[in-house]
Amino acid sequence: MTSSADAADDRGRAFRELVEPEIEVMLRVARTMTASDADAEDLVQESLLRAYKGLSRFDGRHPRAWLLTILRNTNANMHRRQRPVLVDDTQLHRESRPAFGAAERPSAEQSFLDEELDEELHAAVAALDARFRSALILVDVHDLSYAEAAAVLDVPVGTVMSRLSRARERLRRTLGPTRLSRGGLS
């Protein structure tokens, strides 16, 4: 093996180590940008291709934010015109009950919401202004940091924080204290 092949090998390994832990979150976020699971997968693959080509320009910090920025740009390019808002209504269509992915949930013993609260949450989230909703989905549902959500939305961190705060306040008021304190949620 020549030394340039060694270098390519190292580069490939470094990239794999960077990306592997982020595949799932990339797919989830991609799913909020696209209309179908298949589109989300295409978007992630195309983004990885671009990320690999641009690896030398990555400073090594915050790989998730870097990958999500590429995801956002790739999505914009693939659709020519940038979508004005992320997280459209297709994302709010009822999906199958979350029987999987339990490991990521905060508590194994309570992995389902009370059905009534679940419905109310659907209605309340759907009623949010789209800009507020996307901030909420990215941070509270996808567990992104403020900076990562800012990378996806292409807005400053302060904007994510104010949208998030308004979204949460609206939901809290809509659901009300009784709803939120019942069901051992707190």
Partner: peptide
């Protein structure tokens, strides 16, 4: 306490996109 409950509800919510392994 309500904000904590809301955050927890959102993490358990069925609207959370499911990713096929």
């Amino acid at each position: 306490a309500e904000h904590r409950a809301l955050h927890r509800a959102l993490s358990l919510w069925s609207g959370r996109p499911y990713v096929d392994p």
